[in-house]
Design a protein around this nucleic acid. Structure first.
Lengths: 248, 248
DNA sequence: TTGCTTTCTTGATCCTGGTCAAAGCTGACC
DNA sequence: GGTCAGCTTTGACCAGGATCAAGAAAGCAA
């Protein structure tokens, strides 16, 4: 009964992109069943390392709940975050045996996993999965390139504003679509993690957060709860082209 | 006659990844023939803009000769290079109508092009092409993330050393595989383009080039011709983990 | 040759963000 | 309650790279 499978799949793994973006819409139900059999869940606690650079990776996965980060490290220990995995994001690389980055859970994380080998075999047989993964990877590449612009050319204040607007947008995309108007959300990152993401020190992050608060761009109910009185005002601080919506 | 087609294809488009990495090895010859019919060439002069952000893109392409760059721009004109297209690199995004970046030829460039729509249709039918594109995109994503580490955490001197070693490696990969020993190559970028890539100003690039020369890490026959007496010495200056070769 | 343009180098000065240091908060555990 | 650890803020000072400004070098046309 494909219907039953679909329902349980949806319930258990509502955010899994493999389900709703790659499989259900376009593939036949026996492929869905195959995926369903392969799937298993893993949980990680906040702070726990999911994989170290160079570790053998026997599975690919998609984040169901929680937030994980990808980081790279220089010889002397300087670190740079290179990716943020939010619910529905995909992790792992078909065709690659070892992790290319350190993967760390910054909150408690649940992932929907598939063993790599059978997943790769399934990709061979069901072209829509690799087409969907291509789309997702291209999106990630775009995001990485936008981040390069941020790292290379933005000021500390612009970097903070950009990060806040990105988190706000992703966090609130379900709650309200409109820009403008008040917006509230929790910061899922420590000041240090923000610094690693932005290529700054945690002191600079803290100072710029205080500055944005002093200037009335944001309000801080607690250290991790942000309230944005005017979202457009925040966007003005990012340095981005504001009329860039037409590029899509 | 598939053989004849293959030969002409190789001759005219030796560096095209669509040919030797995605098609020939795994697909049937009628698909090769279909690709062959679709293909056409375009040339651009040094300095010419291939596409502006937001332009309609009716083709995808792969670089045959020359070098092109992808750049992004902030509201006030600050620019950051986000990609370097060398021979065999792929340009364009199946499924996307408009360019996401400014694409500029920095030297004279020849590209092997395919009209987007038929190319997309072919992707639907020949899964190996999208699988190969997925692999290539994942490689690009890795490169972008390595670049994020550079932009976020490296010093000016380390950035220059990294760029030189990357260009040297790609340029010389055919000539000599070994590290260590003397290495010569031409810089295909102006100081300004280097600065845009590294998130620096051109003055800083110039100063650091002079410093590396003064310290004997590189020699400058002319402003664009680099000679590296000891490649390992240059690698030491990049700040990267030197024993990172096992990650594959 | 001369003049003109583009690219590159070098110097002087400034300022953003890093570094070092101290102290304030907050929550957990006893 | 007290204590401790982790996270955050703030201050003082410093330095790496940006900015502003001249000029040098190289390429090119007349």
């Amino acid at each position: 009964m494909p219907t039953t499978q679909l329902e349980s799949f949806q319930m258990e793994c509502a955010n899994c992109p493999i389900r709703h973006r790659a499989v259900c819409a376009r593939c036949e139900s026996d492929e869905l069943a195959r995926l369903e059999e392969m799937k298993f869940y893993r949980s990680f606690q906040a702070g726990q390392t999911i994989a170290w650079t160079g570790d053998r990776m026997d599975f690919v996965a998609s984040v169901v709940t929680g937030i994980a980060t990808l980081t790279q490290t220089l010889e002397d220990g300087r670190t740079q975050m290179v990716g943020l995995l939010l619910p529905s994001d995909f992790m792992g690389r078909p065709g690659r045996e070892r992790a290319a980055y350190d993967v760390t859970a910054t909150t408690d994380v649940t992932m929907c996993c598939f063993r790599r080998k059978p997943f790769e075999e399934m990709m061979e047989k069901t072209p829509h999965v690799s087409q969907r993964l291509l789309e997702m990877t291209l999106d990630e590449l775009d995001a990485a390139r936008e981040w390069m612009l941020l790292l290379g050319r933005k000021t500390a204040r612009e970097k903070i504003a950009s990060l806040l607007s990105i988190i706000a947008r992703r966090d609130a995309s379900l709650k309200l679509a409109k820009t403008g108007g008040r917006l509230e959300f929790d910061l899922p990152l420590t000041r240090e993690a923000m610094a690693d993401y932005l290529g700054l020190t945690l002191e600079t992050v803290s100072r710029q957060m205080s500055a944005l608060k002093r200037d009335g761009v944001i309000e801080l109910a607690s250290k991790r709860h942000i309230s944005v009185p005017d979202f457009d005002r925040l966007l003005d601080e990012t340095g981005d082209d504001t009329d860039g919506g037409m590029l899509a």
